[in-house]
Structure formats: C-alpha cells, structure tokens
Amino acid sequence: MAQIITAGVDLGSTYAKVVVMKGTEVVGYAISPTGADHDETAKKTLKRACRIGKVNPERIEYMVSTGYGRRVVSFSDESISEISANATGVEHIARTQNIRTIIDIGGQDTKVIALDDDLKMTKFAMNDKCAAGTGRFLEILARVLKVDLDDMGELSLSSKKPVDITSTCLVFAKSEVATLIFKGEKKEDIIAGIHKAVARRLLGMAKKVGIRDNVFFDGGPARNIGMIAALEAELGRKMIVPPMPQIVTATGAAIIARKRLLKGQ
C-alpha cells in the first residue's frame, strides 16, 4: 500500500516553511520569505517542497496550515496554532531525547512550551505585544551593526567581554546599541551582549512555565550558534537543536495532518 502523503504549511511572519511527508518521513521541504501575498507565497513554497520531495502536489491527502498566516492559506484542509504544531513536531523529531521544555524563537513570537511525560503540551508562555526576544529583534540589531544575520553567531563566540544591554525593548535596545557603537565597543562584544539579553528574556518566560529535563531549541534563531551558547549559559542546560530548526513547526503540522487522516479511516 502506498504511504500516506501529507503536508504542513507554516506561514510565519517572516518566512513560509513547508514540509511534505510520506508516512512519517520528511521527503521535501522549502523555505521562502513571506511576501506581501501570503497565499501565493505559501503556494509557491509548497510547489518547491513537492518538487524536491518528488511528490505530485495532487497526491497530498491532507494539509494542515499553521503560523501567523495560517488562516490565509486557502488550500489547506485545516489550521491549528503554531504552539501545538511545534510541540507535535518536537514529539516527532526528538521523541527519545527526554525533552520536557521547548524554546521556539520565531520572527515575531517567542514561545516556551512545557511538555508532560507523554510529550503532550501542558503549558506555554508567549511574548506579549512586544518584539523583545524575537527573531526580528536579532534581525534589526544585526542591521544596526551592519552584520549579516548568519554571521552573528560565529562573531559573538569570539567575544571576550560581552556588554550588558539593559533594555530588551527593541526600540530602546536599538538606541542602546547605537550608543555602544559610538563608545567604540567591539562588534562581537555587542552581539554577545544582544544574545545574552534575548536569553535572559527567554529565561524569564521559561521560568513561568517551568524548566524540566532537556530543553529543545528551534525556530530560525536556533541556527545561530551564539544564541545557543547564550541560552545554555543563562539556563544552565544544554540545548538540543535539530539539524533544521526552522521546519519543526511545519513538520508538526504535517504530522497532525497524518493523525487526522488515520483517525478518519
């Protein structure tokens, strides 16, 4: 019997991520910046993921959309919140790794999710009306520092003396960083300070839901090695980071699609 084909579409505020699954295996995925036409972006990203996975889009049996733009994805069968999708994705990817806490840094939302022993979500915290501690925060400060976002991690690791960034409000942090540049602080020290500020903010959120056992870290900023190091330092725990941290939520959506199909049969 042919394996069930499902897809998860995670239309985030910054990037659209699509995962195509055969059975429980990811066969194709694609990521593209969320443009002005969200539905179109999602469609194109899906097409690309299908091409990579060598899957005929028409053979997708069930599709779940998630993320900030989940409701504008006109062609999905169902939409669910990215928090549950993320938790499901982690359950699928890291089932055996004793994970009870998830940190997911997205473009405009940051979440900390607590899991029970069956890896079901029991609690979550999310940043409130403010971009502090989000991917956007890192992105904009990279721009202020004229550093490529992808280079931030490496650069920060060479810091010997991270500066203290007092303000985690993006607007104020921007002016604080500008002041630090004028003061002649080294870029790597400022970047390390930024990572530390984000990590501290995350620690506050994590404490709200409680940190237990191993911590899984995903979302775009989990590609930033300096961010990982800062979180490990603040939380005093090792972060478990998947090879493709951006597609965990889309993977979860595809898994939920599969569960829906199996339940329906």
Binding site: S81, E82, I83, T88, K120, T122, F124, K259, K263
Partner: peptide
C-alpha cells in the same frame, strides 16, 4: 487568537488530535 487557540488545543490534548 493564537494564544487562546493554543490554550484550547492544550485542553483538547486528551482527544489525541495532536
């Protein structure tokens, strides 16, 4: 909406939809 939905989904965990 996201936060309320996620909370409702959390309440529905026992339905094994996730």
């Amino acid at each position: 909406a996201i936060r309320t939905e996620a909370f409702l989904e959390q309440l529905g965990m026992e339905d094994d939809l996730f």
